[in-house]
């Protein structure tokens, strides 16, 4: 059984009866594929990401991860398979120390203490933040917070990484480090971003969203080279 692909099948979502944010989104990410999700503000990118691990349930359509349809029953397994990194690391980091924060996910998975400790070490090592393990998240710089936020998700050893604006608000060096870090992951990844340069560097494929629908889906180079399309989609 592989959990490494994810299918959004005709996803509709309404925040209120008159406000439909997602209007029939269909897309599939295959094993190991890195896909950029771009679109103007309010296009529905973040809302779609929240569907990836069941934080929002579609009003119509379904999410399939591997061979499992996302339901209440499969939710815990799917949340382990799909790691979601939020846009603002301050929303993600809430424990007193980096180490405790990174161990929060694995601890919720009822793993043994040794296994949790190993995962925390591996995750912090992967993002180059092992030396920050005893620091308080509040004392970290923006770039460090972002790396630790990614570690909190990596520690759960997900098959699929879903990231919301991983390069937003970072200084140029931290942004370069972030891009190199994400490039080094072998995970299937869906990355919502406004950073089109990063999309080009990381993702061979791009999906452009417009008003809750997929406006275009194809090779990044081709889509981002189409200025009429970008203009039409508010990019």
């Amino acid at each position: 059984m592989s959990h490494h692909f994810i299918l959004f099948d005709n996803i509709h979502y309404r925040y209120s009866p008159e406000r439909e944010v997602l209007r029939g989104v269909t897309m599939q990410l295959d094993h190991g594929e890195k896909v950029a999700l771009v679109g103007a503000n309010g296009a529905g990118k973040s809302t779609l990401l929240l569907h990836a691990n069941g934080l929002l349930s579609p009003s119509q359509g379904q999410v399939v991860v591997g061979d499992m349809v996302l339901t209440k029953k499969t939710l815990p397994t799917i949340r382990q398979s799909v790691g979601l990194v939020f846009q603002n690391p301050d929303d993600q980091l809430f424990m007193p120390t980096v180490e405790e924060d990174v161990s929060f996910g694995p601890a919720n998975m009822n793993l043994s203490r040794d296994e949790i400790a190993e995962r925390v070490e591996r995750a912090l090592q992967a993002v180059g933040a092992l030396d920050l393990r005893h620091r308080s998240p509040q004392q970290l710089s923006g770039g460090e917070k972002r790396r630790v936020a990614i570690a909190t998700v990596l520690a759960m050893e997900p098959s699929i990484l879903v990231m919301d604006e991983p390069s937003a608000g970072l200084d140029p060096r931290a942004r370069r480090q972030m891009i190199a870090l994400v490039a080094s992951f072998g995970h299937t990844a869906l990355i919502a971003t406004h950073d089109l340069d990063m999309a080009q560097m990381l993702c061979p494929r791009t999906v452009i969203m417009l008003a809750g629908q997929v406006a275009a889906d194809g090779p990044t180079k081709q889509l981002l080279g189409d200025s009429a399309l970008l203009e039409r989609c508010g990019l």
Binding site: L50, N53, L55, P76, R79, Q80, G83, L84, F86, N88, D91, Q92, F94, F104, G105, N108, M109, T152, V153, M156
Partner: peptide
């Protein structure tokens, strides 16, 4: 903000 934090916690199995 509390909702976003709670979502982030739920995403990690809380």
């Amino acid at each position: 903000r509390a909702e976003r934090i709670s979502l982030a916690m739920a995403a990690r199995g809380f």
